[in-house]
Design a protein around this nucleic acid. Structure first.
Lengths: 282, 282
DNA sequence: AAGTGGTCTAGACCACCGC
DNA sequence: CGGTGGTCTAGACCACTTT
């Protein structure tokens, strides 16, 4: 049995697992994209394997080709597969699709098997912070919720997190904030961050940071300024975070890809914008 | 005249400028997306303005609705507009669509009105660098092109750039490298980077960096390790770059958005992955 | 009820690649 | 040449928001 024959049998076995529920409120393309993604992430389809072509997959699942194509576009966008005109679609190489996904620092630490804890240094309502207000596109006198937290992992100080919330969330408590991540709390209050602009820099630690983060001699901090907005562009919060440089890395994936994950053959279209995904890890 | 009436007249004037060439080899959706993008970037359409709806725009341009929709999806992906079911499409707020796009450090400096220059410290063919080879998924003994450059702006040292190329480009010359950016040279040789994984960190400058970059006392460096791959996942290069922290910031835009720039209403689909764009600036 | 975006169909023709 | 992905059409029905 040749290796390609083995790959074909993998493909056939995988295809047999696929199914979509046309009565579900979940879009068909989304159902299929999730199943295809899982197949690759679980290793059922392996790097270099030929993907079933769009037409026959559509026929097999009784879907139209555009719908199947849209599903595959999701995988292309995630960097899991590569489409080549005239050739076919193949599962991308290992190093390409180890694409980091974003999670909050709290979640990231937890995922690393560490125990994240939070010490709330400050929680104040109705604060005025003209700089934060300006960054959030609000009037300078807009009252904000000011927040200062020290994030630790297994008791080791990791980051100093300062945030100013544009929302009148008077029910936030120190206990809530020490129990988990800020964005999780916001989502519980139906606040869905949609866009966040971050600026990553670095400098030597201030004396306060040195004290709170227990940084070593000459250890710098990685600084992240963040502006978050919801679906409609309404401001959510402004954050200024300092991470111990020796304990953190920010992973970014830059990708050149047209919007829908297809690759126009035209040179003008190739000069397209580039997209990336971000994760942070300790 | 009400402000919405003014916005409507802007919209009408803008629509009159639109046109697509059906005989062009450039995809129709791409032609339209570029024109719409330009209209927003040039301020012809302003934040908060209502976009023409998909159906009438399709009718006006004699295109099908899916094609127009695909164009608008490009803008959604770029963060320029916001779609809301039952409401319409509006131009995103200023702070949301000031989305930085990626460019090479060389291009970024030039765009800032600075004069970028490059000093080639090393250019060596057939080098063995097991660490770089491993990162690129190559055999440890694979010969690489080793490259070390000092990038300056207006004569001020900005960054130390070390790269190892996986490609047998024996025709690279010091003169080429001092004339422009590395990736521009690669594109001239038909090498199209498709995916780049970067890890951003920070540490205090080594003595060599201190000497070459003329860093101030206690000034750290921002470090970026980068792996670049082409369309097919073939490795292009491994880079280790050190930027003077006081002179650089990395801008990242995180966005939660489904693949094609649409927003599934289903909660399961909302728990989708997040995308971002990266730029670096001095 | 009217109008918007969100999804989907069942085709079509073309460009590119490998045989 | 056949098979693949890339683009496009002309509809359809639905979900959601506003009036």
């Amino acid at each position: 049995m040749t290796s390609s024959a083995i790959a074909e049998s993998r493909q056939a076995a995988f295809r047999a697992q696929l199914s979509v529920d046309k009565t579900s409120p979940i879009p068909l393309y989304h159902q299929l994209a999730e199943q295809l993604t899982k197949g690759i992430r679980d290793g059922i389809l392996q790097p270099g394997d030929q993907f079933e072509n769009e037409v026959s997959l559509a026929q097999y699942l009784d879907l139209s080709r555009p719908t199947v194509r849209r599903s595959i576009a999701v995988l292309v966008d995630r960097g899991l597969v590569v489409r080549r005109r005239g050739v076919g679609t193949t599962v991308a190489h290992e190093t390409v699709h180890r694409r980091a996904e974003f999670a909050s620092l709290h979640d990231d630490l937890a995922a690393s098997g560490l125990v994240p804890t939070t010490r709330v240094l400050k929680l104040a309502f109705g604060q005025h912070e003209p700089r934060a207000a300006h960054a959030l596109n609000l009037a300078p006198a807009t009252p904000l919720v000011a927040l200062e937290r020290l994030r630790m992992a297994n008791g080791v100080p990791m980051a100093l997190l300062r945030n100013w919330l544009a929302l009148p969330l008077r029910d936030l408590s120190v206990a809530d904030l020490e129990a988990g991540g800020l964005y999780e709390l916001l989502r519980q209050r139906a606040v869905w961050p949609s866009v966040a602009q971050q600026t990553i820099g670095s400098r030597s630690a201030t004396s306060e940071e040195h004290r709170l983060l227990q940084t070593g001699r000459g250890e710098p901090v990685l600084t992240v300024s963040q502006l978050a907005f919801d679906d409609e562009g309404a401001p959510i919060d402004f954050g200024e975070h300092s991470y111990r440089a020796s304990l953190h890395r920010f992973e970014v994936t830059r990708r050149s890809a047209p919007t829908d994950g297809t690759a126009p053959s035209d040179p003008a279209a190739r000069r397209s914008h580039q997209f990336a995904s971000l994760s942070q890890s300790a």
